[in-house]
Design a protein around this nucleic acid. Structure first.
Lengths: 341, 341
DNA sequence: ATATAAATTTTACGCGCGATAAGTTTTTAT
DNA sequence: ATAAAAACTTATCGCGCGTAAAATTTATAT
């Protein structure tokens, strides 16, 4: 282990006793050189401290090994988790992921896409803001850069969409709630940032009708991504004015549910499925914090793992030339029964 | 708005009617060229679609405008929030931040630092894993790259450390708890990943002694960064075996407290400061979710804003040549009284 | 052993910009 | 108005690597 600093590929190639273009080829794809050659390079790599200059590499390559990962709101642990998952898969596939968060801000999302362009990424995994997105900007971006959308769909854009089968989520939970007690009222934001919310509402309505109940929806105002805050504030208002038709509430997502549970506590309402409980609350997502609410939140778990795995797979497949029609890949959720409903 | 694609700086300079070196100078620092020149460039910039090639730019520059931001665990909303804050400040200062999370993994942290090196960053803002860090690797990195540590200190490394005055946090809370009820027992992990935990324990002990009470500490086992899980699981065990000396518990951090509140719920213990409550629980950090626990968590708020602002300021000061001795900049916390204690 | 294909080397050029030096123009100060 | 300073232009080189074509070596098959 000499660990001498090697200035450039020229010098490193000389140390290997191999020509620079071959070494270059090795770094592009180690499998593309003869075993003997590969061994010599890897021996030298172990002995000397050399790494190709990343800027020079990317300058002329038509396709870099960069991958952009964009999520709408990183302060939401759900996105942090899925980003982490996706990130690791990219690394394992030999790519260089870079993580961006739009922080719920339309302009920032556009800026990120602009910056991403200049990174000449091989591909991008984009969970868009949804309603908050600049539709035209997203479309333009998807035309220029191979992009797989996940979690939050932008109709027609990108190579594919990978996400959850949201109507199924609602159906699953409505069915469960109806079997075990009163049919649920749906609790959501009036102008949800996320398109999944609409699918969930539709799923709720369909499920209720199919089971012979009258759908009841409480839509509250509130902008931005501070869902817990909105769930709490508007939850207090809704509870005080008796807006919930029954003693059972299905929230559009877990973060709203967390806020609503907090609202119930504030008002002294006992949440749960015991006989003495006054209200049942269920969420959707299986947010990382859902198991720590009081009571722990009954919810529908997103299939994190399948979504992230599939999103990455689809992206790399099309990067490597397997082009096919725009796909919509939806994964079912699983009922997670805890104590809140 | 012609929005014609411009290939390179040469071409763009021609469109401006200005020489390339001057345009280059403009991009390096817009203030460095005459007003008249600046206006012409900016007019052309508005008309044509040109952005300097980022790879070519960084290739020869001694110092890039890249800034690395490294946090230990992005799935913790606290780090997501502070990262966001820091990120924005870097952008405002004209730098290009890139966000990395070590995901609680020692090897990943080392990898990140290695990759960061090849980005030739102007500076790095590093919240290290702490006990989980490869001390030697961090030291080596800090010698090569201007680095400001934040949140989690690595003694002696880097240009400066910016964080919280942890003993003060504990003191503040111990004092409050003692004034309003029984003196607290300290609840923490036996081998905390984060060095702040040790300072907080020491602060707790000092505060208790100063106020004439006997310190009582419950140390639970558990590795990793899933603090809520640990707080819940070990909290149940500790409560069942009566390990808490008094009816008041000060947790080393909010995430443990969230787990402990969940444990109390599980065991049917009423948490709060009302007369009929059986246990008081307090945290430290003012985690984004602390206000939504049931009851809402009494805690000590970290001064997010000062910490992120100062960390960025110190880094840019030293990048721009204002070198000074290794500084330790600590910010005080503020008591946030909610209902849990 | 010979033919053929595959892998490698040589040679040569280009990418887009940073940096510098020498010469020219413009601005600012006196 | 004149000199000095500042800003700009022109010219040229270099960074570290990608890439392509042609020449050469090596491996594989007949």
């Amino acid at each position: 282990m000499t660990r001498t600093k090697v200035k450039n590929m020229e010098e490193f190639a000389a140390l290997c006793g191999i020509s620079r273009p071959t070494v270059s080829k090795y770094f592009h794809d180690p499998e593309s050189v003869r075993v003997h050659t590969r061994n010599r390079i890897e021996a030298a790599l172990a002995e000397y401290d050399y790494r190709p200059n990343i800027f020079a590499m990317n300058q002329n390559r038509k396709l870099t090994k960069n991958v952009g990962i964009v999520v709408p709101y990183l302060a939401d642990p759900f996105f942090a988790e899925i980003a982490r998952n996706v990130e690791q898969r990219c690394i394992d596939a030999g790519y260089r992921p870079t993580l961006f968060s739009s922080h719920g801000d339309r302009d920032l999302e556009v800026d990120i896409l602009d910056n991403l362009r200049s990174l000449k990424p091989a591909g991008v995994l984009l969970a868009a803001l949804g309603r908050g997105s600049d539709r035209a900007a997203v479309d333009r971006f998807c035309e220029d850069v191979p992009t797989v959308l996940f979690d939050s769909n932008v109709e027609g854009a990108g190579l594919a969409f990978v996400g959850s089968d949201n109507p199924q989520f609602s159906f699953l939970m409505v069915d469960y709630l109806c079997r075990t007690g009163a049919p649920p009222t749906f609790f959501e934001m009036k102008n949800p940032s996320n398109p999944n919310a609409n699918k969930r509402r539709q799923g709720y309505i369909a499920a209720m009708e199919q089971l012979g109940h009258e759908p009841a929806i409480v839509q509250v105002k509130g902008d931005g991504w501070e869902f817990e805050q909105i769930g709490r504030r508007e939850g207090i208002a809704a509870l005080n004015s008796g807006q919930f038709a029954t003693n059972t509430v299905l929230c559009s997502n877990d973060r709203l549910a967390i806020g609503l549970i907090s609202a119930c506590y504030e008002l002294g309402l006992k949440v749960g499925r015991e006989d003495d409980a006054q209200i049942r609350i269920a969420g959707q997502d299986d947010h990382p914090f859902a198991r720590f609410t009081c009571p722990p939140l009954t919810t529908v778990a997103q299939d994190y793992d399948s979504i992230s795995r599939t999103a990455v797979e689809v992206l790399f497949r099309s990067i490597e030339g397997d082009v096919r029609d725009h796909e919509r890949l939806l994964f079912e959720g699983k009922l997670v029964m805890r104590d809140s409903a």
